[in-house]
């Protein structure tokens, strides 16, 4: 299958500390790639390289190559606003805007210039359906999103993202703040979404990585120790450290 994102020799520094070392990774089209590893190993930092959210942090320096299709995301001609439309992100804690459900989903299309009311209605409904939330919110579209449960809020954030029609979905521990049932719903949703999107998910939960992903990369101290097909990595890890981590000996 074709690579959607190709990372080569990626190094990242926060001031003088190096957070990522010589990272190489291939992220395939319409697959779910899971990034696992202990806290502070650099997996979230890596995720934020892919849509350049690290740009917001003072003193971050990146070298190496990150290709989206065939274009370097750090290239001088890349418009970061456009990049983030193509590579969207769902955060650890659900972060809907303090607006109505409708306005949350319509936020993206509106900032990208869509005004047509009927078209917006369509996008809102389709996005909510794709995020498996429509049935629960169709009768409260114009009430504040902050009244939804945590799990619903997270699916709303996914719907909000789908509304801008991204190509890649980055998910930073999307269910770590949710209860088991909401987590299950998100995981089922991911299986639906991978038909149309390339998904990269950071997770602390190894069962989750094993359940949902096609490919897994194990991060440790800013390096990728091992990456490959999820089945293989979890059943026959090549590296001793991977084995120790997935069997719960540390982390």
């Amino acid at each position: 299958m074709a690579n959607k994102i190709t990372v080569r020799n990626l190094n990242l520094f926060y001031g003088d500390t190096q957070a990522l070392r010589e990272v190489d990774l291939d992220i395939e089209q319409q697959q779910i790639s899971a990034l696992i590893g202990p806290s502070g190993c650099g997996k979230s930092t890596f995720l934020r390289v892919l849509n350049r959210m690290n740009d917001l942090i003072e003193g971050v320096r990146v070298d190496g190559q990150v290709l989206l299709d065939d274009e370097d995301v750090h290239g001088p001609e890349v418009d970061v606003v456009h990049l983030r439309k193509r590579v969207g992100m769902v955060f650890q804690r659900p972060n809907p805007f303090p607006m109505s459900v409708y306005d949350n989903v319509a936020y993206g299309p509106r900032i990208h210039g869509l005004k047509n009311k009927r078209r917006l209605d369509e996008i809102v409904e389709n996005s909510l359906r794709d995020a498996a939330l429509w049935e629960e919110v169709h009768d409260r579209l114009f009430r504040s999103a902050l009244g939804l449960s945590g799990g619903q809020q997270q699916r709303l954030c996914i719907a909000r993202l789908l509304a801008v029609e991204p190509e890649v979905l980055l998910m930073d521990e999307p269910s770590s703040a949710l209860d088991p049932i909401s987590t299950l719903k998100i995981e089922e949703l991911l299986q639906e979404l991978k038909k149309n999107y390339t998904i990269v998910i950071v997770t602390h939960n190894m069962q989750q990585a094993a359940r949902v992903s096609d490919v897994t990369a194990f991060f440790l101290n800013g390096e990728i120790v091992e990456s490959g097909k999820t089945d293989t990595l979890f059943t026959r890890p090549k590296d001793k450290r991977t084995e120790d981590y997935i069997t719960g000996r540390f982390g």
């Binding site: 849509n51 959210m53 917001l56 606003v81 456009h82 990049l83 983030r84 439309k85 969207g88 992100m89 955060f91 804690r93 972060n95 809907p96 805007f97 303090p98 936020y107 993206g108 900032i111 990208h112 954030c157 909000r160 993202l161 801008v164």
Partner: peptide, 15 residues
């Protein structure tokens, strides 16, 4: 205003 609102907006491709 929580930083998460800014992140959410920028991550959607807002200026």
């Amino acid at each position: 205003v929580p930083q998460t609102y800014r992140e959410a907006s920028l991550a959607l491709g807002a200026t």
